[in-house]
Simulated scan of single mutants.
Amino acid sequence: MASLLLFGGVAVLMPSMGPGAWGPADRVAMLAIGVGIGILMSRYATIHATASDAGLTVRNLAGPRTLAWSEIDEVHFSGGMPWVRLHLHDGDELAVMAIQKADGPSAREDALELATLVRRGHDRG
């Protein structure tokens, strides 16, 4: 919302006459940038991972994906990885952007907890 207000304000307040004047296309483009940034930031705000007895639901920027515990082979969080990666039974990988290296020690704890949940899920299944 803040980006929409900021870029909308710039679009309205820029000069419409004289040197460096903004035309209607410039104003619409500035407003579109504000809308785009607002949408992107709202997607970032909804990133999460939720565990249940049945499995794990991961919501990244692209949208949610629900996995049964049996679909997850391994949890990786090492080296230069910015976030946790799940190695899936079908050979695919899935990033878990909700657990990011930038969060420091709490991210390592969350990754270990997720790995434990995956092991428990395999033991039950």
Results as ranks from 00 to 15, higher is better:
residue 27 R to E: 05
residue 60 N to Y: 06
residue 18 G to P: 03
residue 45 A to C: 00
residue 107 A to Q: 10
residue 85 R to F: 11
residue 96 V to T: 07
residue 22 W to P: 00
residue 111 A to K: 10
residue 99 I to V: 10
residue 92 D to C: 08
residue 95 A to H: 14
residue 96 V to H: 11
residue 25 A to I: 15
residue 37 I to R: 00
residue 20 G to I: 03
residue 74 E to G: 10
residue 99 I to W: 07
residue 22 W to S: 01
residue 31 L to S: 13
residue 18 G to Q: 05
residue 89 H to V: 15
residue 117 L to W: 06
residue 63 G to D: 08
residue 115 A to L: 05
residue 121 G to Q: 00
residue 44 Y to E: 11
residue 77 F to D: 07
residue 98 A to N: 08
residue 106 S to H: 13
residue 109 E to R: 14
residue 92 D to M: 09
residue 15 P to F: 03
residue 8 G to E: 07
residue 73 D to E: 15
residue 87 H to L: 15
residue 109 E to T: 14
residue 107 A to T: 11
residue 14 M to K: 12
residue 21 A to F: 05
residue 104 G to E: 14
residue 5 L to H: 08
residue 50 T to D: 14
residue 114 L to K: 05
residue 9 G to L: 01
residue 89 H to C: 12
residue 43 R to K: 02
residue 46 T to K: 04
residue 27 R to N: 06
residue 109 E to D: 15
residue 28 V to F: 09
residue 54 A to N: 05
residue 53 D to S: 04
residue 72 I to T: 05
residue 32 A to K: 03
residue 7 F to L: 07
residue 85 R to Q: 13
residue 20 G to M: 01
residue 74 E to T: 15
residue 124 R to I: 07
residue 23 G to N: 02
residue 87 H to G: 15
residue 48 H to R: 11
residue 67 L to A: 06
residue 7 F to D: 03
residue 52 S to G: 09
residue 101 K to Y: 12
residue 4 L to K: 03
residue 89 H to A: 15
residue 61 L to I: 15
residue 51 A to I: 02
residue 63 G to F: 06
residue 97 M to E: 14
residue 99 I to T: 11
residue 31 L to Y: 03
residue 6 L to S: 06
residue 112 L to S: 15
residue 82 P to H: 10
residue 51 A to E: 05
residue 87 H to Q: 14
residue 30 M to R: 01
residue 77 F to R: 14
residue 13 L to M: 07
residue 71 E to Y: 06
residue 96 V to P: 13
residue 28 V to E: 07
residue 111 A to M: 10
residue 80 G to Q: 10
residue 45 A to P: 03
residue 74 E to R: 14
residue 21 A to W: 02
residue 22 W to H: 01
residue 101 K to A: 15
residue 62 A to W: 12
residue 21 A to P: 04
residue 98 A to Q: 08
residue 32 A to G: 03
residue 116 T to V: 03
residue 70 S to G: 13
residue 6 L to P: 04
residue 57 T to G: 10
residue 68 A to W: 07
residue 65 R to I: 07
residue 6 L to R: 05
residue 103 D to K: 15
residue 64 P to G: 12
residue 103 D to P: 09
residue 125 G to K: 04
residue 116 T to A: 09
residue 9 G to K: 02
residue 54 A to V: 05
residue 85 R to S: 13
residue 19 P to E: 03
residue 112 L to A: 15
residue 30 M to W: 00
residue 52 S to I: 04
residue 10 V to R: 01
residue 59 R to F: 09
residue 41 M to V: 02
residue 5 L to P: 06
residue 2 A to P: 07
residue 58 V to S: 11
residue 42 S to L: 01
residue 90 D to P: 12
residue 16 S to C: 11
residue 71 E to N: 09
residue 54 A to R: 06
residue 65 R to D: 08
residue 71 E to K: 08
residue 66 T to S: 13
residue 51 A to N: 00
residue 44 Y to G: 04
residue 28 V to P: 06
residue 98 A to I: 11
residue 6 L to Y: 08
residue 77 F to N: 07
residue 81 M to N: 11
residue 11 A to V: 00
residue 115 A to M: 05
residue 82 P to Q: 13
residue 48 H to G: 01
residue 42 S to V: 01
residue 115 A to S: 11
residue 68 A to S: 13
residue 51 A to Y: 00
residue 49 A to V: 10
residue 91 G to H: 13
residue 45 A to F: 00
residue 5 L to D: 05
residue 9 G to H: 02
residue 87 H to S: 15
residue 104 G to D: 13
residue 41 M to N: 00
residue 3 S to D: 04
residue 64 P to D: 10
residue 115 A to G: 09
residue 55 G to Y: 04
residue 4 L to M: 09
residue 125 G to T: 09
residue 6 L to V: 09
